[in-house]
Every structure is written in structure tokens, then in C-alpha cells.
Amino acid sequence: MSGADAVRTEALSKRYRRDTALRAVSLRVPETAIYVLAGANGAGKSTVMKVLMNLERADEGTAEVLGMDSVRCGPQARAQMGYVPEDARHPYGWMSSSQLLAHIAAYHRSWDVSYADRLRRTFELRLDRKVGTLSKGEARRLQLILALAHRPAVLLLDEPTDGLDPVVRSRTLAVLAEHLADGPTSVLVATHQIHEFETLADYVGILRDGSLIAQLSRDELPNVVGRYRVEVPEGWTATRELRSAGVRGNPVREAEWTLVGHRGDLIDRLTVTGALVHSVRPVSFDDAVVALIAHQVTP
């Protein structure tokens, strides 16, 4: 993998009046990687994307897309991005779908008309209806076409499968995988449906209250999250650090927990308190991400 980053933010901070939406977020999406951005609602996932699109201005820090500053080279950066916003409804409700596609197509020299048509057929979208009359699922699909048809180098997807029924969801993911195969594309996707992107994801980042508390590649996950089977002596209680790592309850003899932290570190901590670690097994991508989102931040 080359050292170039498709998306790179450096100590990005954004405040809304009294709320801090982003705190010194330094996010990296390597080229041609698929980066899943996870976190609770309001953690700041949408804000990161809006800053990259220069729809919101950061108070501090920088944001770059393909080496271009998102503010100073805004138009050039946006020419290389396909954006699916969180809100499925498109503002131009009074336009017909075909008019809207033609309108956006005029702005992108790399718009592939046959590809747009193929996507429309795959998504079974009729073009004669007004955008405002589309259902949430149809509107989402239209937005996906708008984002994919000009084959941008970077895709910013904010909850792309939100509002789609199960059949369309899997079709969307297959379309995405095919799209990636057609040309080098980097993807930053914010989603709650972690399991959907389980097989696609290369990197994962966790946002909590505006801070990027974890950012790692998929292969590094087993080093940081594991299923620990532990045997404990009588009257054993967990230390505060172990509870932050994910130890729950008051185990009697045997217990199994999903713990977050460096493996050697955790084994040491457990052993020091008298527990015996039987095994540490890897955890599914979905469970690992959930554990990362939920674990307490060690002071």
C-alpha cells in the first residue's frame, strides 16, 4: 500500500455554539481503502463528511482529500468526491429524476451515462417521477446513482443503506463492490449497520463525542479486542482498569468477556489480580466494533 491518503484530517475541530462536534479528529483513509466510521448518533460522523465537502467550516485543523485542501481547493476536491448525505430527501423535490440526473451530470466531466443507466435498472428506479414524490428508499437509491455515476475517486457515504429494504440493501452492497472493482476508489462510510460492511471494510474508526478514540485496520482488530475466557479465584473482584476494558459482573469461577486493550497488557492485568487466562479468541468484526464503541475511555 502506497503512503498516499485518500482522505486525511489533522486535528480537526468544530464547535456549534456550546456543543463540540469534533475534537482534534485525525482521520486517515488510505487510497483504495474502505473505511468504516462507527459511533453513536451525534458522535460527529456526519460532521466529518460535511467538513470534507466544505459544507461546514472547521474551527481548527485541516481536512484534505487526495492531497487537496477541502477549503482552498474545494471545487477540485468535490469534483473527485461522491457524497451521499444523511438525509435521504433531495432538496430539488420539484425536479423529475431524469432532470436531476441530467443536471448533476452537466457538472461532472467523468459522468458515465451508460453506467448511470445500468445503475438505474439495477435499482429499479423510474425516472419520470418528481424527486419530491419518491419514497425514502427510492430517494436513497437516486442519491447513490448521483454519487456513483461520475466514478469519483473518493466516496463519502453517510448511512447509505438507511431506509432501504433488505433486498435492496444487499443489492446496494453488491453494486458498491462492483463499483470498487471498476476502478480505484476510496470509501469513507459512516454507518450503524456494521455487520453489513463486515466483509467490505479494511479500516475502522470509532468516533465518540467528537473524538476519534480508535482507528485501526481490520487485521489489527484481533490485537485490540478479544474474547477472554478466564478462571477466577473465590471473591475475585475486577480493578477499575479491567472494568473499563469490559469486565462485567461478579464472576463466580469462570467467566468470558469481550475486552478491549492490548492483549499482553490485559493478560498481565488479569494475572496480577489472580485470575487465570484460559484462552483469548478473536471476535467478529461487528462485535469488535461494538465493543470498541462501548468500552470506557481509560483515563
Binding site: E64, L66, G67, M68, D69, P75, Q76, A79
Partner: peptide
Amino acid sequence: MMPATTGLTPRLRHVLAAQ
């Protein structure tokens, strides 16, 4: 900050026509 690829943004006359 030099843009990686110039010339990808639409020409002004196309923007005006689209508008």
C-alpha cells in the same frame, strides 16, 4: 496546496447553461 488534478471542474459556460 496544489490540486492533484486540475481540469476536472466544469467550465463556467457549462455551469451557466446548467443553471
